[in-house]
Computed example of a mutant assay.
Amino acid sequence: MNSQQGKSPKKNSREWFDALIIAAIFATFLRVFVVESYRIPTGSMENTLMAGDFLFVNKYVYGAKIPFTDSRLPVIQPIQRGDIIVFKFPKDRSLNYIKRCVALPGDLLEIRDRKLYVNGKESALPEYAQFLGEPMTKGVGDFQIFPRFSPFNKDYYGPLQIPKKGDVVELTPQTYSLYSSLIADEGHDVSLTGSLVFVDGSPASSYTVEKNYYFAMGDNRDNSLDSRFWGFLPETDIVGEAMMVYWSWDPDLPLLFDPVNKLGSIAWHRIGLMVH
């Protein structure tokens, strides 16, 4: 006798409901701890990644963040220089950004004539990276560049030490713009009055860094809002590592009003592309 015979519609509906709940829990677990989809919204990583690419992001490799806490799962592989990472934008954590990690906690970073140096050694330009704008002159500061009031610009930057947990940094009026946002982000009140820096209401000549930080840059070096503009990337904001392009089409064509051209814009040659 068929085991399904004799079951009431109510019991069948309950079984389907239970199966859907289990599937939803499993899908949520995968999304939170294992892999998540991400869409490339801008051209800051061209020509490595293109606007309109859809990616899978590996969240467990760096230790996925446990929701509603500051804790993480164990790290499978630490972040490496050159990894393409997805992270919460430190200035607006409702936004996800994607860039290439170019320097690790404790590294000394410098850009000279568009060439990147880490710990005194030149870092090779990524295979598909590009420059689109005119080169800038050394010593000509850019008011948009981090830290404010420095002589840095996008093509001549640093040298700059990337903070790591346990570093003791000097606090002066000259270093205030370099470390003030870091200190505030670590949960402290920080201010500058005259020649004194105050942390949590007390004068402070130094500060012990509580987190590890990274430096991230886009492969499209002249069209990327990256660490050169907003500063150090906290380890706690890193979501995961980009893995693979699973879909790609023109993001500017509306599917609803122009479905033929939208479907015709599918970049079949990019589907399945491993990200590096």
Rank of each mutant, 00 (worst) to 15 (best):
T137F: 07
Y246W: 13
L20T: 09
Y213T: 04
F33N: 01
E122P: 05
G43S: 04
S191F: 03
V34Q: 11
R72K: 14
G240I: 07
F54Y: 15
P151G: 09
P173D: 11
A51Q: 09
P126E: 13
D219V: 01
I162Q: 06
G139A: 09
I22G: 12
S44G: 07
V168F: 03
V75I: 15
H269T: 15
K121W: 05
Y157L: 01
V57G: 12
T48H: 11
G106D: 04
L20E: 06
N96R: 08
D222M: 08
P203R: 05
L49Q: 14
I40C: 07
Y60A: 13
N2K: 15
I145A: 02
F143G: 10
F56P: 07
I162S: 06
V190D: 00
L171A: 07
G141E: 15
E15N: 11
Q5G: 09
M1D: 15
L263D: 08
I76Y: 02
T48F: 13
P67M: 06
F68M: 04
S248V: 01
Y97G: 04
H269M: 11
G264C: 08
A129S: 11
A27D: 10
D142R: 01
D219M: 05
T28H: 05
Y156H: 15
F87M: 07
I85H: 01
M50N: 12
I84K: 02
